[in-house]
Amino acid sequence: MKTIVICSGGLDSVSLAHMVAQEHQLTRLVSFDYGQRHRKELDFAALCAERLGVPHNIIDLRSIGAVLTGSALTDDIDVPDGHYEEDSMRVTVVPNRNAIMLTVAFGFAAAQGDEAVATAVHGGDHFIYPDCRPAFTESFEKMQKFALDGYANVALHTPFVHQSKADIVTAGARYNTPFDLTWSCYKGGAQQCGRCGTCVERREAFHLAGVTDPTSYADPDFWTAALARQAGV
């Protein structure tokens, strides 16, 4: 199946790209610049495309991102430290982000003659991000059938939507994903911080999967305290 992968350069989407490259026909990686503070992730998406030998398209959505205000990922708001399942992480929501990106990717796929769009949404995202939940992805795919009716037939491929981040690490290892060449940190510094929600989740996932984490973190031990706090210990 000719498949486009939406790739942010993070652990999830890069693992997905390696999976698709082996299981399907990977045609290209598509990334989005929506004015995110951690846009250095796009460099890691470019490295992934080069490694897998496919084109890499960066779609400029900065003018759209500029009006999706109120998120710590786009505005001058501190990115909170802690686990994703803490209420403080809701400030990292960018309204309708995945819905917008998927709509563009589906149009791109239809124009290019591709048969599927793959995205790495997963079970760990459900608590905070409504457009990562199965109800959304299933409804979105049905909507696109109507949007492209008579023009193209493009499927939505979400192999991780019912899985955990640890499951993604396990799958990524199976498909030889170079985890050290992925970027997760929302703070976008010189080194992944180890404290923001996505760093804590990343560190926990490697632990649960029993896979060595090759990532260099500014604060490599913070995740244990974050998990204890989230569990009320």
Rank of each mutant, 00 (worst) to 15 (best):
residue 203 R to N: 13
residue 91 V to F: 10
residue 196 C to I: 12
residue 154 V to A: 05
residue 194 G to I: 06
residue 98 N to C: 07
residue 18 H to C: 09
residue 183 W to N: 08
residue 161 V to K: 04
residue 38 H to N: 11
residue 167 D to T: 06
residue 56 H to P: 12
residue 109 A to F: 11
residue 27 T to L: 11
residue 72 A to S: 12
residue 119 T to Y: 15
residue 14 V to Y: 01
residue 199 C to M: 12
residue 23 E to K: 15
residue 7 C to W: 00
residue 82 G to A: 13
residue 97 R to D: 05
residue 121 V to K: 02
residue 162 H to G: 03
residue 219 D to S: 13
residue 144 Q to G: 05
residue 141 E to F: 09
residue 170 T to R: 15
residue 65 G to C: 10
residue 48 C to K: 04
residue 26 L to Y: 11
residue 40 K to S: 08
residue 74 T to M: 06
residue 14 V to T: 14
residue 180 D to Q: 08
residue 209 A to N: 02
residue 131 D to S: 07
residue 208 L to P: 06
residue 79 V to C: 08
residue 72 A to F: 00
residue 204 E to Y: 07
residue 199 C to S: 12
residue 67 V to C: 06
residue 144 Q to K: 15
residue 5 V to Y: 04
residue 151 Y to L: 09
residue 149 D to A: 13
residue 191 Q to H: 11
residue 195 R to S: 11
residue 65 G to T: 09
residue 96 N to G: 11
residue 211 V to G: 05
residue 147 A to F: 08
residue 227 L to S: 12
residue 206 F to S: 02
residue 37 R to G: 12
residue 188 G to N: 04
residue 69 T to I: 01
residue 130 P to T: 07
residue 208 L to H: 06
residue 9 G to Q: 07
residue 205 A to P: 03
residue 155 A to Q: 09
residue 104 V to T: 15
residue 84 Y to D: 08
residue 71 S to Y: 08
residue 111 A to M: 04
residue 104 V to L: 14
residue 144 Q to E: 14
residue 184 S to I: 00
residue 112 Q to N: 13
residue 203 R to L: 08
residue 189 G to M: 08
residue 160 F to K: 05
residue 111 A to H: 06
residue 66 A to V: 00
residue 199 C to Y: 07
residue 81 D to F: 13
residue 175 Y to Q: 09
residue 175 Y to A: 00
residue 65 G to N: 10
residue 45 A to S: 14
residue 229 R to K: 15
residue 64 I to Q: 13
residue 74 T to I: 13
residue 103 T to H: 03
residue 209 A to L: 01
residue 105 A to M: 04
residue 192 Q to C: 06
residue 166 A to W: 00
